[in-house]
Design a protein around this nucleic acid. Structure first.
Lengths: 223, 223
DNA sequence: GATACTATTTATAATTG
DNA sequence: TCAATTATAAATAGTAT
């Protein structure tokens, strides 16, 4: 959106793509925030970026996810949710398939190089990438090496569902029966008319949403 | 962003707020799509609007997003899920690295082939694997045109936890085991709202992971 | 209320340091 | 590579139909 009109297709230039990602990701999250604030709606944006183990997310309060989840409580079919996919299995399967692909690719690569050698008679050493690739795929040991604190900070999924802004919810959630949350008092009263909407997905509005954990959900997510 | 600088606070005027919501929501989803296409990253946006039973979502396959929601059970708050999170986190990281390697390898492969061509002056057809890799890396146009199809091949878990290039993702996500669902092809790329829950009647038949729709999540998007 | 239409503000592609 | 700058494309607030 500047200097030149951009065509909507993948940016092949690595550095250019990276730069664009950085700019636009920021812009997108900002837009999300603005929409949510201006119109008082639940909005959520997630962007996973290459080489980053955790996604950029808006809104920044992952704990609000619980409220969104609690809106599901009334839905039927809950029992069947046990059938939920085994995520780890999914990933493992993917890795296996990727390995296959990689192996084929490596084989092709080797064949190409062999031809090259025969034709030009010089020894082009395998790029580090190729060797690293196989070890990366195969090297399960690294799993053990994963820093303990690494995953502690990782919670892409949990952030994913977070949403809504405080404004309406604050209105919707009168001072809890529980210990009051002081920060809520800054909410303006003019917004009364607006409070209806955000209500629609929250059945536990009367509780302190930052602390309350729906017992049903709790059990649902527990083994 | 026009006529007057907007103050970042809730719009009290009902009609004005509604109008803004409509405009900005559209804009935000568009931005999400653009970012995703231009930089080839997994990006997701969800907007709940008042008086609308289902949220506007990008990408157009909400069931993919839904699966992300299911991963919420990995919340660190859930003590027993931490272990699993570790596993997933590791796997995700591993996949990211593998994808990097794969990209490098693929690039290298291309270079070798270029040399080959120059030297032997004949066009040796790409072996299957390399061709697949190539199209996976280069085939951005198709993705833009039929995001639905594209996502058919994307593992939901990958979508939510990984981020990175599609190129590698395509490699990592081989074609679905099940035959494609033709009805998805009618999904209009631009009309996000209409495709909110195309899978809602696609039951758990087959229980293939790429097709399976969790009833819990599915019902979320159903009125 | 939904468009359609600008005048502006924003976002950002290209460029520079 | 990265941040800052700048010129331009996009988004959109207010308005009219």
């Amino acid at each position: 959106m500047a200097r030149k009109k951009v065509k909507l297709s993948w940016i092949s230039n690595d550095s250019a793509r990276k730069a664009t990602l950085k700019k636009r990701r920021k812009g997108m999250l900002k837009k999300t925030k603005e929409l949510s604030v201006l119109c008082d709606v639940k909005a959520c944006a997630i962007v996973y970026s290459p080489d980053e183990y955790r996604p950029e997310v808006w809104p920044p309060e992952p704990e609000r996810v619980m409220r969104v989840l609690s809106s599901f409580k009334s839905l039927p079919e809950m029992e069947k949710s046990k059938k939920m996919l085994n995520q780890e299995g999914f990933l493992r399967q993917r890795i296996s398939k990727t390995q296959e692909q990689l192996q084929k690719l490596e084989k092709d690569n080797r064949e190409s190089r062999t031809k090259l050698l025969m034709l030009q008679g010089l020894d082009a050493p395998l790029p580090a990438a190729a060797a690293a690739a196989s070890s990366a795929v195969m090297g399960q040991q690294e799993m053990v090496q994963t820093p303990a604190d690494w995953y502690m900070n990782v919670n892409p999924m949990m952030m994913m569902m977070t949403m809504n802004n405080n404004h309406p919810n604050d209105m919707i959630n009168p001072p809890p029966l529980l210990p009051p949350a002081p920060h809520r008092h800054q909410v303006a009263q003019e917004n009364v008319a607006n409070v209806a909407a955000p209500m629609q997905h929250n059945q536990y509005a009367g509780h302190d949403e930052d602390q309350y954990v729906d017992p049903f959900l709790d059990s649902f997510f527990s083994p």
